[in-house]
Nucleic acid binder design. Structure first.
Length: 563
RNA sequence: UGCUCCGUGGUGUAAUUGGCAACACGCCUGACUCUGGAUCAGGAAAGUCUAGGUUCGAGCCCUAGCGGAGCAACCA
């Protein structure tokens, strides 16, 4: 009688949700929630960015707010429109939208300039004429305070004049910078009169040659947040020490109660790969992989080409959570996420990677039958398809052994197996080549055992996938393994991650045989090759020369037993 | 010899905010199965980095230590 008392325990909240709810409860920022995803357009997005994207857009969604897309394009020497487009594509692929809120830090160059001018006038910024080396030396070290620049106390008028001339192109790159005047003795290195503007004469991908000075990250990020009305600026842990500076600039800028708040969370690390843009760029540049979208890459375009679904990526991100602990997440959890998703939605088909010819000696040579086979045993609404069956078929080489070990449930001389969706066959003999290798297997079939037939329920140990030799389509199948053989390739101080590159990360299989229903498969179509794994049609695939990528193997108990 | 952050099964996270350490992945058993997949049932696995303290009671609060990470680009 107490059914209604069942305890509905809300999902536990991570620390950022807790912080947001506390801000909401305290009535901060008028109850508004506004986040932003701020990539620098200098590379392709990877799964670590997906973690940030899911948080930024996810928090906005959950609390009825908005999330802006903002390109952090303050360094024209590294950035390019090529990246802008790919970033937008990847965010959309994940299923998030920024609607019309596509912004650029470069949109604010004017406002940022005005703010810098204001700081100079208030005696809070100055132009420093020293070299990068001199400034760096005066900065001190984490354990020693810095010393003040000889230009630190020059007049606001002089700094202002110089700052204007810097932007007119009068001075060379590196000859002068604008610095915030804070505290050269601060225990926080970032507060030791940080450089906020530098001279850069490379044209900017959006503003061209309009500017000769560009704001540094620290001078652009918080202020951009402020200009956009961002309430929660979520970023990764390494920016923790930047937060006092973020707050310092906001303090100089704010005019009322509104203020954006930076909160840091742990970056995503995955086992057996590298995640820094720099290292990924090197792999691409040096041809270690075939581009940013190589299916072995942890980039979103790589995962997409590999056959990952956006849902599986989001599910994975959801599983790992957000904390402040620097963790390394197991790729096998990612693989679990894609298997879970594809198990539910991927149509089953037959694909034979290493074909072994089987002749069913008592099956008429001119007969072709069509077997009706379910597309997905998990969900009968996926319907059925017809698969041609004939006297000559291919099975997987691994599914036959002349001298099988104990517990080998597959085909062997004298043994019976079921051909999935067709008949039970018995091996009656083998044909060998000169080297003594089995090149063909002879079997007989039992017509009574046809699926749905009178003897269909007869138990046999194994069920094999197969394709009719005359009807099968040739395919190239690319098998992928981990790019690195070490769990944490960048975790070794004195060893280049490349020392751990896995030479077998790509295996190209040619002459594979797949069932004819795959003739019209298009790039990115996903299938389960039954008993083998999940596969996805590659961009290189053409009608008549199909190419598949293996997304992930099926769990394979037999393989495990054999180890 | 500084500052900031972080230490919970193998891994990633929880713990009603001071009240019986839980969940997922992985692993092991068994059942079922026309995928050695999936599914279902069960199991092993941490006593919360260490030492003190506060408290009736500490994973949670305090102190000290140990360990790890980040911080000295005119990168973000």
């Amino acid at each position: 009688m107490k059914e209604s008392e069942e305890i509905i325990k809300p999902d536990s909240q991570h620390f950022i949700e807790q912080a947001i709810e506390k801000d909401l409860a305290e009535g901060k920022n008028g109850g508004r929630i506004h986040t932003r995803f701020p990539p620098e357009p200098n590379g392709y997005l990877h799964i670590g960015h997906a973690k940030a994207i899911c948080l930024d857009f996810g928090m906005a969604e959950k609390y009825g707010g908005r999330c802006n897309l903002r390109f952090d394009d303050t360094n024209p020497t590294k950035e390019d429109v090529e990246y802008v487009d790919s970033i937008k594509e990847d965010i959309q692929w994940l299923g998030f939208t920024w609607e019309d809120r596509e912004f650029y830090a470069s949109d604010y160059f004017g406002k940022l300039w005005d703010f810098a001018v204001s700081l100079i006038k208030r005696g809070l910024a100055y132009v420093d004429d020293q070299s990068a080396e001199a400034i760096s030396e005066q900065k001190g070290t984490p354990t020693q305070p810095g010393t003040e620049s000889p230009f630190r106390n020059r007049s606001a008028e002089e700094s202002l004049d110089l700052f204007y001339r810097m932007n007119e192109g009068e001075f060379d790159e590196g000859s002068r910078v604008l610095r915030a005047k804070i505290d050269m003795a601060s225990p926080n290195m970032h507060m030791r009169d940080p450089i906020i503007y530098r001279i850069l004469k490379t044209p900017h991908h959006r503003t061209g040659t309009e500017w000769k000075v560009y704001p540094m990250y620290d001078f652009a990020h918080g202020q951009s947040d402020y200009f956009e009305g961002i309430t929660h600026s979520l970023c990764t842990l390494e920016f923790e020490v930047h937060r006092p500076l973020y707050d310092w600039f906001i303090d100089q800028l704010k005019t009322d109660d509104y203020r954006p708040r930076q909160i840091e969370f742990n970056r995503l690390n995955l086992t057996y790969t590298v995640m820094s843009k720099r290292k990924l760029l090197e792999l691409v540049r040096d041809g270690v992989v075939n581009g940013w979208d190589d299916p072995r890459m942890p980039t979103l375009c790589g995962l997409r080409r590999r056959g990952y679904t956006p849902e599986s990526v989001k599910r994975f991100v959801d599983l790992i959570g957000y904390t402040k602990v620097e963790a390394i997440n197991d790729v096998s959890l990612l693989e679990y996420a894609i298997r879970e998703d594809l198990n539910r939605r991927a149509p089953r088909v037959f694909g034979v990677l290493k074909p072994l010819k089987v002749t069913i000696t008592n099956y008429p040579s001119d007969k072709v039958d069509h077997m009706e086979i379910e597309n997905n045993p998990e969900d009968e609404t996926h319907g059925k398809r017809l698969v041609p069956f004939s006297r000559d078929i291919f099975i997987e080489q691994d599914d036959f052994m002349e001298n099988p070990p104990h517990k080998f449930f597959r085909l062997a001389p004298g043994q019976e197996v079921r051909l999935k969706g067709a008949y039970i066959i018995r091996c009656t003999g083998v044909v060998k080549n000169g080297a003594g290798e089995v090149t063909e297997v002879h079997c007989t079939y039992d017509p009574e055992t046809r699926s749905g037939g009178p003897q269909a329920d007869r138990k046999v140990k194994g069920t094999l996938h197969w394709v009719s030799a005359a009807h099968a389509l040739d395919a190239e199948i690319r098998l992928y393994d981990r790019l690195f053989s070490d769990e944490d390739p960048s975790g070794h101080k004195d060893t280049d991650p490349r020392e751990f590159l896995n030479p077998g990360s790509l295996t190209v299989m040619k002459g594979c045989k797949v069932e004819p229903s795959l003739a019209d498969a298009e790039p990115l179509d996903r299938f389960q090759f039954q008993r083998v794994g999940y596969f996805c049609v590659d961009y290189d695939s053409r009608p008549g020369s199909l190419v598949f990528n293996r997304t992930v193997q099926l769990k394979d108990t037999w393989q495990k037993i054999n180890k």
